[in-house]
């Protein structure tokens, strides 16, 4: 009886695992095969190197979308990564306990806000502000999207970076202080280097959030697909924004397939980012000796990653 139960339980777990793996594979396969159909309508060269995406002329060059996504993500990271690291250092090393608690609650609140709210705030606050401050265009564009994304990526980055710093052993701090380091020297010369794998994970996952964000970006980016934007404040688009804007109205098979191909590209980029996280934190086969004794330096990855990959759109 017990044996039969064990077999039953085992097969249930096995099927559950199999379903998960198979459906992931099927997802990639479906999106890939559907997307690749675009090449029966247009040439790969005109898709990958085309500088215009215009359904009226049936030009589906991905560069405006790809460029928009990469530029938005890059601008976001340039602001967001140093900010998140600074905030997490403040929370772990400087803030007294009550303030730390308030900040953590704030970070959690930020994480739980629906992205449409961010979009709304972007549209009503950021866009008019940029328009008035810069006197160029309508205020919608890559910069507006990046400003919104800076706020959206903070919870991801801060909570992982904070975990990474917090899990560093107290003995490292005491060791640095005991040879006469000031608090800042301790932070910059010992703690930050020791937490580097965790901090890198924070940045990469924040990047994943930035590149995949759809709703909020779509509301402030301007949704101009027909050209590669020449500056950060004129209308642009990103890959997810283009998909969500155009897919409902995509009537021609070529247009549909092209959009699905964009989705496939987005999927590939995301997978590369996940591989990057693996490399940053778990890629210890070659550099085991540098990290072995500080498992804490990789701290916070499993739980935090699981938590945050869950909420990625």
């Amino acid at each position: 009886m017990a044996r039969r139960n064990a077999i039953l339980a085992q097969s249930i777990f096995f099927s559950a695992a199999a379903i998960l793996v198979l459906s992931t594979g099927a997802l990639v396969l479906f999106i890939g095969s559907t997307g690749l159909r675009v090449f029966s309508f247009i040439s790969p060269a005109s898709f990958f190197f085309g500088r215009s995406w215009d359904q009226n002329t049936q030009d589906f060059g991905v560069l405006p979308l790809l460029f928009g996504s990469l530029a938005t993500t890059l601008v976001t990271l340039v602001i967001s990564a140093p900010l998140a690291i600074a905030v997490s250092i403040f929370m772990v090393e400087i803030a007294p306990r009550p303030i730390r608690r308030i900040m953590r609650t704030a970070v959690e609140l930020f994480a739980s806000l629906p992205s449409v709210i961010y979009g709304l705030l972007g549209l009503t606050l950021v866009v008019p502000w940029l328009r008035d401050a810069l006197h160029v265009g309508l205020g919608k564009g890559i910069l507006a999207a990046a400003v919104v994304l800076v706020f959206m990526t903070q919870p991801t980055m801060v909570s992982i970076a904070e975990d990474a710093l917090r899990s560093l052993p107290e003995s490292l701090r005491e060791g640095a202080l005991a040879v006469g380091a000031t608090r800042w020297q301790m932070i910059w010369r010992v703690l930050v280097p020791a937490a580097r794998p965790g901090l890198l994970t924070a940045v990469i996952l924040g990047m994943g959030r930035a590149i995949g964000e759809t709703m909020a970006v779509q509301m402030v980016v301007g949704n101009i697909t027909s050209r590669i934007p020449s500056n950060l404040v004129s209308g642009a688009t990103t890959m997810p924004a283009a998909i969500v804007t155009q897919l409902p109205e995509a009537t021609s098979p070529a247009h549909r397939a092209a959009l699905i191909m964009v989705a496939f590209l987005l999927l590939v980029i995301t997978l590369i980012l996940i591989a990057g996280v693996r490399l940053a934190t778990g890629g210890k086969s070659t550099k085991a000796s540098t990290r072995r004794a500080v498992p804490a330096a990789q701290g916070g990855r499993p739980a935090a990653v699981a938590k945050l990959q869950g909420d990625k759109v």
Partner: peptide
């Protein structure tokens, strides 16, 4: 200055990574 003049070795080795 105090800590430069008074060094310390801890219970568990704590080299920096």
């Amino acid at each position: 200055e105090i800590r430069r003049r008074i060094g310390m070795v801890f219970q568990r080795p704590n080299p920096f990574p």
